[in-house]
């Protein structure tokens, strides 16, 4: 590898770095890629697999638009490299449901108008699905009154606290919370 500061022909280390092969399991399908090792999972999804439902809002882990589920847990896909996810089970918004069979959370977002421009929406929905699983598993949050309790009541405060990594500039927050609440309620009946 060349030292980037060594000057010479002005070539960066990346020129000699080979592409990295990685097999991603995305939405139940194995996708083999050869990517620049610097490629984020987000850019691999969007620019290589053309799964543009996962959105880039800040590329910095600050907005949540790129949220996907990795082995069932929500992750900001802009903050992790594609090559780190060999054999991981990745679910994107496209894998949750499609136009013919919407996921309950997708349908609830439509019914409650949990979005306007739609750009943060895939991240909100993936995050909501992952969040409900976290609550179901008994993980406490800053809003949990009794962190020792094995069962967590899904109050609106819990939803808001746990969804705060997903920014919506259209500010559909009250409708998003209503959409999540409706799904959670239906799931417990």
């Amino acid at each position: 590898m060349n030292d980037p500061d060594a000057g010479g022909a002005g070539r960066s280390w990346a020129e000699t770095a080979p592409l990295s092969a990685v097999a991603l399991r995305v939405n139940d399908e194995v996708r083999r890629l050869e990517v620049d090792p610097r490629t984020s999972l987000l850019d691999a999804l969007r620019e290589h697999l053309h799964l543009s439902g996962t959105k880039k809002g800040c590329d910095h882990g600050q907005c949540g638009a790129c949220t996907v589920l990795i082995n069932g847990r929500r992750v900001n896909s802009c903050l992790t490299l594609a090559v780190m996810h060999e054999d991981d089970e990745i679910v994107t918004i496209e894998g949750l449901g499609d136009l013919d069979s919407l996921h309950a959370m997708q349908r609830s977002f439509v019914e409650r108008d949990g979005f306007q421009c739609g750009y943060c929406t895939p991240g909100q929905i993936c995050s909501a699905v992952g969040m409900l699983a976290e609550v179901g598993a008994g993980w406490p949050s800053h809003a949990t009154a009794d962190v020792a309790s094995p069962r967590i009541a899904l109050t609106d405060e819990e939803i808001r606290e746990r969804m705060s990594g997903n920014i919506c500039r259209c500010a559909a927050y009250p409708n998003i919370v209503a959409a999540i609440r409706a799904v959670a309620k239906a799931g417990t009946q």
């Binding site: 439902g53 959105k55 880039k56 918004i93 136009l99 997708q106 979005f115």
Partner: peptide
């Protein structure tokens, strides 16, 4: 309900990039 809602919640609404 928004006509474009199903496209947006499934990631099928295509933006500029």
């Amino acid at each position: 309900d928004r006509i474009d809602g199903p496209l947006k919640v499934t990631g099928q609404a295509i933006y500029a990039y």
